[in-house]
């Protein structure tokens, strides 16, 4: 099965280290929640895995290979990086068609993923008329296009309506049960507690935790409590303590 292997990954922007020798393996057959404060390096990790950003050192491999070595990568990895990543003047259907053609994906998959993400009725509308939630659905449709064994979703619940959130939860569960590797970054702790089987937590570009959800929560009252007790020391912006205590 297909894992994402991140080995000693460092990404420096000038003096700032967005990722600092990060080593972690994201395994198939479960939903892995990717957590961490803003600036912890989650999105940078995803961009490096996709070959969009060049690492300063280290490597990110999918199925043991660099992403850029795949001739038809959409058949190996499906990713949602930002919800709005489509030309605003293109229709949803045409947007997916350009992606399908580039990876020799049969055109019927375009209709299938539009159906699967609830966008069939909006297929011929231009992306600029889409709400944030619809753009998220379109991003998800693009990720599913190549029926890939690995899915990476960056904040996929952003802007989704309650129905969409439940649908996404069921979908990611099904994809993981089918043996796929599912990595979801999110700031929503309650959502993560319901969706993830396993957690990877980053802080300041370093690995803070890599554990099953149950073990991570442990003696804490909730995922949120466990998360804050871990990340408080590494948050990029620390809040001022009140005087009440």
């Amino acid at each position: 099965m297909t894992s994402i292997d991140i080995r000693e990954l460092t990404k420096a922007y000038g003096p700032v280290r967005a990722l600092d020798r990060l080593t972690v393996t994201v395994r198939p057959g479960r939903v892995t929640g990717f957590l961490g404060p803003n600036g912890a390096g989650k999105s940078t990790t995803l961009r490096v895995v996709l070959g969009l950003d060049r690492p300063t050192s280290g490597a990110a491999l999918v199925d043991g290979r660099p992403y850029a070595s795949f001739a038809e990568p959409l058949r190996h990895v499906g990713a949602v990086l930002d919800a709005a990543a489509a030309h605003p003047a293109r229709t949803a259907r045409d947007h997916l068609l350009t992606l399908a053609l580039s990876n020799r994906i049969p055109v019927r998959r375009v209709e299938e993923v539009l159906e699967e993400t609830g966008l069939a009725a909006a297929a011929r509308r231009r992306v600029r008329t889409f709400s944030l939630g619809m753009r998220q659905r379109l991003g998800l449709a693009a990720a599913l296009l190549g029926d890939p064994p690995v899915l990476m979703l960056d904040e996929p619940t952003n802007g989704l309506d309650p129905e969409g959130i439940v649908h996404l939860r069921r979908l990611t569960r099904r994809l993981a049960d089918e043996g796929r590797t599912v990595l979801i970054s999110s700031h929503l702790m309650t959502e993560m507690a319901q969706t993830a089987d396993h957690l990877v937590v980053l802080g300041r570009g370093r690995l803070l935790a890599d554990a099953p959800l149950k073990d991570f929560i442990g003696k804490h009252a909730s995922l949120e409590d466990a998360y804050f007790s871990l990340t408080d020391s590494s948050a990029e912006f620390t809040h001022q303590e009140g005087t009440s205590s």
Binding site: R47, L50, G51, L52, Y67, A68, F70, P73, L74, V77, A79, L81, D82, A84, A85, A86, H87, P88, A89, L99, S102, N103, V127, A142
Partner: peptide, 18 residues
Amino acid sequence: AGEYTGGGIRLSLAAVPR
């Protein structure tokens, strides 16, 4: 330039990484 409005270039290069 249309590829760069709205971050479409990332998706384009994820589809064709070479």
